[in-house]
Design a protein around this nucleic acid. Sequence first.
DNA 1: CCTGAAACCATGATAAC
DNA 2: GTTATCATGGTTTCAGG
Lengths: 144, 144
Amino acid sequence: MNIDEKDRLILRHLGEDARMPVRELASRVGLSGPATGERIRRLEASGVIARFTVELDLAKLGFPLQAIVRIKPRPGNLHIVEDMIMGEPRFLDCDKVTGEDCFVVRLAVRSIADLDPVLLPFHDRAETNTAIVKSSPLKARNPL
Amino acid sequence: MNIDEKDRLILRHLGEDARMPVRELASRVGLSGPATGERIRRLEASGVIARFTVELDLAKLGFPLQAIVRIKPRPGNLHIVEDMIMGEPRFLDCDKVTGEDCFVVRLAVRSIADLDPVLLPFHDRAETNTAIVKSSPLKARNPL
DNA sequence: CCTGAAACCATGATAAC
DNA sequence: GTTATCATGGTTTCAGG
């Protein structure tokens, strides 16, 4: 699929407000309604738009504390550690990375007291390095 | 604002498909259309729903490579480093954290060759530690 | 391949209860 | 909260460039 400048503009606008009426979006990118609707449909079908979703304020949902944890499983514990991550809903993101560590995860908890219970099961199977998130000046920006 | 179980169910469904018709969402949570619509409106007004957005496939947009970089500014360079991060669109996320490092950022680039030019300007002002993302088994899950 | 207009229909908003 | 009704907006279709 070929993405042109108008597609990128559409994606930028949808990223800011995915419920913008097609007609308004159309006027902003300089196209007609049907043409814009067709582009959205194609971007969705091709998978460039993975899904329409909502961005939540986790603090207001009762998870005001986030941490970024680097996890280095001990020999033989790679798969079990990955399964433990996937099975714990308080882990929001998980990336497998090159370098010293194997996983970099983000987690959200209700309080500082909840941090230890979440990470405790890992201490047998991995070395962890926890950094408390003080603020997030940038969240899920798109590079367009 | 008080969030009950039905609100959490609504948020879960919207997280998977934010364009689900209110009537369908209503039947899934066991409420009427207007009651569900009113709950969505309140969740939005209270900021629990920060915004409706699209999740993009960055690889299909020409940014197939992601990295997680820990950045530790040298003395006196904190603000300039933060400004440099904010001004570079290829940085997707930025968290200020406790511990050894100061920033943990995620970036997306077109190729491995693009990595160095993006990070080069930081070498004067900070120590960086770069981990290439091999895969992301978990992306933006919500803890509900 | 686009635009613009009109018809149609799904959907969100509203009113009354 | 519900149900019934109204109005908005998305999709499709067409004629024309």
